[in-house]
Nucleic acid binder design. Structure first.
Lengths: 218, 218
DNA sequence: CCAATGTATTCTGTATACAGTAAGCGTAAG
DNA sequence: CTTACGCTTACTGTATACAGAATACATTGG
């Protein structure tokens, strides 16, 4: 196997993303660069580069003289992400060749079933979910679109992993995915799009309704 | 008036964007950091930070040991951007309060007319166009969506400004915008969305057909 | 006692220094 | 003559150093 060659800034970026997801960092928390750099065992340079990358992905924000801070979880932003994702993924399906979609639908069906069976721990649910959606849009030839979807999904997952208890999420993900996969497998893209949109919105709504908003700022 | 306080990295970012638009840099050209930094009169640090930001916006790409390069203009990528923008802006309109849209429609109508009259030079067309679209989506409460639209439009405009002769673009922009504005003013969002999508796609298509692909890599 | 201004400290933003890797070139071996 | 290996050069990736701004605190005047 080829040995992975990654620069520090991308490793730092990944680490920060997982910390945001596992709740190791307080939403809205200010970032002390020297302290965090020391904690990560790197210098400020790759840390700052990672922060800047995350900033233009919308995961972190900065004010001029005051440095960076993890964006506070806001109910409204979470609500904003769902329709964007639904729309983008719907577009991705529409742009995908129909014959590949039915093929993909079959693969996704089996994969969705495996979700329920496995006892997966917290972090893995997200990983699995990303894998699933990655496959779903893999037939879309619009690479730019796929990249945008992934970045947006990252942001969404931050909320999901912080707000949703593990078992609930497993169940939700499995159910949603099965419906979408079935539609795709049967060649009905329109139905898949409808299921997709409904599920993003319902999922988001249900999460919000069941959440005591301890995390939220608004 | 409040004095603007900007850090170097954002100024560098802006400068690089305009250079990409005016064609001062060769598409696909590799970036020599020390040389470019000296040319801009800054150190490598803010330059690299700007490059990293632009990279996660998709305007620049990098390979691990080889540094950054301006993304080559690719016909396929230009084709990819149009449907994304059409879809996102359509969503923005759909999410906007109807009553504000008719109001905006009126403002846009007059603004669109002023396009044809004024003899504007190259760079200003893009500026005007951005202003116009900015107003169009200004009623959309989904801030995240608006930010995504702006970043994507930046990428699109790079192609437009490099490929389209000034006078042609003025005419195209004016005509397109008038149609959309009329639909909005009359309260017909669906019609506006249709016009919007048609115009993005037609515009892109017409530009591609009329372009001797000297710039393109594919 | 409160407010306002001066001062110290901390942290960001930027510059510079250092190390390691990749590409180019020449030379030697087949 | 061609190819492969080693060397040199140049540039990236990372670390450190420095300067200036922001904040907290103290001190002084009302």
């Amino acid at each position: 196997m080829a040995i992975e060659r990654k620069n520090l800034r991308s490793q730092v970026r990944d680490e920060l993303l997982t910390r945001m997801r596992t709740g190791d960092v307080q939403p809205g928390e200010g970032i002390n660069e020297v302290q965090l750099a020391a904690e990560l065992g790197v210098s400020r340079t790759p840390l700052r580069e990672a922060l800047i990358a995350l900033e233009s992905e919308g995961q972190i924000e900065s004010q001029n003289g005051k440095g960076f801070r993890f964006v506070p979880l806001s109910k409204s932003e979470f609500e904003e992400l769902a329709p964007i994702l639904a729309t983008l993924e719907a577009l991705a399906l529409r742009l995908s060749p129909a014959e590949q979609l039915t093929e993909i639908g079959k693969r996704l069906t089996t994969l969705a079933e495996s979700f329920r069976d496995e006892r997966v721990q917290h972090s893995l649910v997200i990983t699995k979910d990303e894998e699933w959606h990655g496959i779903m849009v893999s037939a879309c030839p619009n690479r730019r679109l796929v990249a945008m979807i992934e970045a947006t999904r990252d942001a969404f997952h931050r909320y999901e992993s912080l707000l949703v208890p593990n078992d609930v999420m497993v169940e939700r993900v499995a159910a949603e995915h099965a419906a979408i996969a079935r539609a795709l497998a049967s060649g009905d893209v329109d139905a898949a799009v409808v299921a997709l949109e409904a599920n993003w919105m319902h999922g988001m709504r249900r999460i919000l309704d069941n959440t005591t908003s301890a995390y939220f700022t608004d």
